[in-house]
């Protein structure tokens, strides 16, 4: 398998040069192979979410390299980073749904700039919602759904763009057991179809899904379990 994502000696410092400076990541290096399932774990504040955000091109490192298919994201323009984000699907811990949009619009809003017509988007959203057991929620607003349902909508949005990589940040932390199991089933199915999974989690069941588990503490990589 080829290396899809790699970070080399990456550090991320928030609010540098101020009293509130926080070193979220400190000299971290690792690689993620195409089609693999990788998980990051560690205590709160250990840098898992920051690491996922860097891998997902949601922010830039303070030092070091982030490579996507050997391409240095640090050197890319904002527009190029956005184009790379279109190849990734991000599942956020707080779902990050837009409250004023209907479920189907939330799922397919990222596809508007890609030129997909409203009719095709609706069809795609209905198909994804069918797969996730939410076919009756197409026109509802996120706030009308339970936490588990919202998370499934967030998954549907991540899947809608047919991403090469799915990055899930504490995806089960806000869910009950049943919803967490449903989510894992969907992720397993997606992974089985060849999509690379990068997970940040405390959940042992999610960790069990991963082929590689990285443990972080205070922004540093302290252990690897392959």
């Amino acid at each position: 398998m080829s290396v899809l994502l790699e970070i080399r000696n990456v550090s991320k410092i928030h609010r540098p040069g101020t009293r509130a400076e926080v070193r979220a990541l400190d000299d971290v290096s690792l690689s993620v192979e195409s089609g693999s399932c990788v998980a990051f774990t560690g205590p709160s504040g250990s840098g898992k979410s920051t690491l996922l955000a860097l891998l997902g091109a949601l922010e830039r490192p303070s030092h070091g390299l982030v490579l996507f298919k050997d391409r240095d994201l640090h050197k890319d323009s904002d527009a190029e980073l956005t184009r790379i984000r279109r190849k990734l699907g991000f599942i956020f811990q707080d779902f990050a749904l837009i409250p004023s949009l209907a479920v189907w619009e939330n799922i397919t809003y990222p596809l508007i700039p890609r030129g997909m017509s409203a009719g095709k988007r609706l069809t795609l959203a209905q198909s994804l919602l069918d797969d996730l057991g939410l076919s009756d929620k197409t026109y509802e607003r996120p706030q009308q759904l339970s936490g588990g349902e919202q998370q499934r909508v967030a998954i549907a949005r991540a899947l809608a763009g047919r991403p090469e990589v799915i990055l899930a940040d504490e995806a089960t932390s806000n869910l009950d057991d049943a919803a967490a199991l449903e989510l894992m089933a969907v992720l397993k199915k997606t992974h089985a179809a060849g999509t690379t999974l990068i997970l940040s989690t405390h959940d042992p069941r999610m960790l069990a899904m991963a082929e590689t588990v990285y443990r972080l503490n205070a922004g540093r990589l302290v252990a690897t379990n392959c």
Binding site: T82, R85, Y109, P110
Partner: peptide
Amino acid sequence: ILKATGWQ
């Protein structure tokens, strides 16, 4: 959210 999901 729009930027994170691929809006320029």
